[in-house]
Design a binder for these strands. Structure first.
Length: 238
DNA sequence: GCGACAG
DNA sequence: ATCTTGTCGC
């Protein structure tokens, strides 16, 4: 039992008994619901970046969300949600630790995004349910994962140019791409979450790059989530 | 048994 | 992820 069922936040995992084995079983079941086809609004109106950070030595989990206009990349809204940390980090079970806070952040938005980009793996996961895929199935929203390092799978180094990518395979399956988002920077690990195809996931990340290693949605959320003394207020541009 | 292991 | 300054390289 890694998660105290009496704590807050776990209504996000209906049917979970709080054990590691139970979490893995639930992942396998939810993974079967993942849609790896492009089923999202065309053209994309908005895109949101999500990331999680910690404060108070890890006792508090802080999730940040930044909603951007998909065409101009201007920030429309940003919010920070806090929740007492209820589970330790267990490789492969990241979503059970961070998803509750992410869902709270999502609820703070005045409107759901057309696409959610989450810091972490999509289907490039042992049971094909990284946090981005879990987020997608749990919310029904199109999603994809952008991680800074690989969890599972093998790949050859992608070319040096921005946009160069190489396939990541795991147990004989294509699960994502190692993407060179910026010259002389380590590649990003991109994989579909839900309602987005493998190739489209990589193309979308490239589309939202703005000169930094991380695509704008995730980069901004990253900055909000890890910044000390981050405010919890929303920011409305004018 | 040994090594790997998102954040 | 987080604890933490300067430093090397492009």
């Amino acid at each position: 039992m890694v998660a105290p069922s009496s704590t807050h936040g776990f209504e996000a995992f209906p049917g979970w008994d709080g054990s590691v084995a139970g979490a893995r079983t639930l992942q396998a079941q939810l993974a079967a619901q993942v849609v790896l086809e492009d089923v999202f609004p065309r053209p994309l109106r908005t895109v949101a970046g999500f990331d999680v950070g910690f404060e108070d030595q890890g006792d508090i989990t802080r999730a940040a969300v930044v909603l951007l206009d998909a065409e101009s990349l201007q920030t429309l809204e940003s919010h920070v949600a806090r929740l007492p940390t209820a589970m330790p980090y267990v490789p492969g079970l990241l979503s059970f630790r961070e998803l509750p806070a992410l869902l709270l952040a999502l609820e703070m938005l005045s409107q759901p995004p057309d696409l959610a980009m989450v810091d972490g793996q999509g289907i490039a996961h042992p049971r094909r349910l990284g946090i981005a895929a879990h987020f997608g199935v749990a919310t029904g929203l199109p999603s994809l994962g952008v991680a800074k390092s690989v969890l599972v799978g093998d790949f050859d180094a992608p070319g040096p140019a921005r946009g160069d990518r190489s396939p990541i395979t795991h147990r004989g399956e294509l699960v994502g791409f190692a993407l060179r988002s910026k010259l002389r920077c380590n590649p990003l690990i991109v994989s579909p979450g839900h309602r987005v195809s493998l190739t489209t996931a990589a193309e979308l990340v490239v589309r939202f790059l703005a000169g930094y290693r991380l695509p704008e949605p995730t980069r901004l959320a990253d900055r909000l989530a890890s910044r000390r003394e981050a405010g919890r207020s929303s920011t409305l541009p004018r």
